[in-house]
Design a protein around this nucleic acid. Structure first.
Length: 281
DNA sequence: TTTGATGT
């Protein structure tokens, strides 16, 4: 080998080493961030299909799994802790998120009959994680087309109960929430607001972390009156996994996952006290 | 004590 080739090989080797060390450090740091923002790992796809594939966008206060096929978040994940004086600043403006690549503008839902519904909620994120995180809940990547009666009434009641009742009672709640789409992608492929596919329903999973964690999960369709009792919409986590193709809490052992995810277990949540509280708007 | 968003 000539010395010129040796030099080239050495330069390539050094570059490769830098790339490996660099990406290793990036990965370790990214995993660290994700661990801080999620209990038992971020959701993963059960099988690699175009409709369950997503990439993780990291925000202050919450993580988001973005699907370029649905042009939707498939999940958002955030931790809520009890705070002494929960308070949110004024509502920021909606903002374009350039990381989505797809052009989803703040006016993309205009005249569609659908609200820009938050997945990671404004109030709870603001109260727990502060003003920067609050602003980031207004990124269009965190929105899904939601019928007004769901967004402003039933869903609002659920979010209020989480922040005002469950978080103070249990201290910490891990929340995973997201949209649900029809089983067959082709059935819904043109059902869109702009480029954004319109979900059929929305899920919200609540977990109290700990030695023996407890979980509660809801699945709410678009068409509701808004005054229904919240416990009409209880489902198991397994049911949501079946509908979404996602695997929630992948770091849980098989036995622990079975106990937590297979059945609806409302013990300890005192749902009767809160299921019928009225909507704010 | 305002935590939901639209359209004028």
């Amino acid at each position: 080998m000539t010395s010129r080739w040796r030099r080239k090989a050495r330069r390539f080797g050094i570059t490769l080493l830098f790339v490996m060390v660099g990406s290793g450090l990036w990965y370790a740091q990214e995993r660290d961030y994700r661990d801080q923002l999620s209990w038992m790992g971020v959701p993963e796809w059960q099988q690699l299909t175009p409709t369950s594939f997503h990439r993780v966008l990291r925000n202050d206060g919450y993580l988001l799994g973005w699907s370029d096929v649905r042009v939707n978040a498939l999940w958002v994940s955030y931790l809520l802790q009890a705070v002494e004086d929960p308070r949110a600043g004024p509502r920021p403006s909606f903002r374009r998120d350039w990381r989505t690549l797809w052009p989803v503008g703040t006016d993309s839902y205009f005249g569609s009959g659908y609200d820009r519904g938050h997945l990671a909620p404004n109030y709870a994120i603001a109260a727990v994680h502060g003003p920067e995180a609050q602003e980031q809940t207004f990124l269009m990547s965190n929105m899904a087309p939601q019928r007004p009666d769901l967004n402003r009434r039933l869903w609002q009641r659920l979010e209020e109960v989480v922040m005002d009742h469950f978080v103070p009672r249990f201290g910490v709640i891990q929340v995973i929430t997201g949209p649900v789409f029809p089983e067959r992608f082709l059935d819904n492929v043109t059902h869109r607001v702009g480029l954004v596919e319109v979900p059929q329903a929305f899920y919200k999973i609540l977990v109290v972390p700990g030695e023996s964690p407890r979980a509660l999960a809801f699945l709410m369709p678009q068409e509701v009156s808004g005054d229904e009792p919240l416990d009409d919409f209880l489902v198991s986590i397994d049911a949501i996994e079946a509908r979404t193709g996602l695997d929630f809490f992948p770091s849980l052992s098989v036995e622990a996952a079975g106990e937590l995810e297979a059945e609806v277990n409302t013990a300890g949540w005192q749902l009767d006290d809160v299921a019928g509280l009225p909507a704010r708007f």
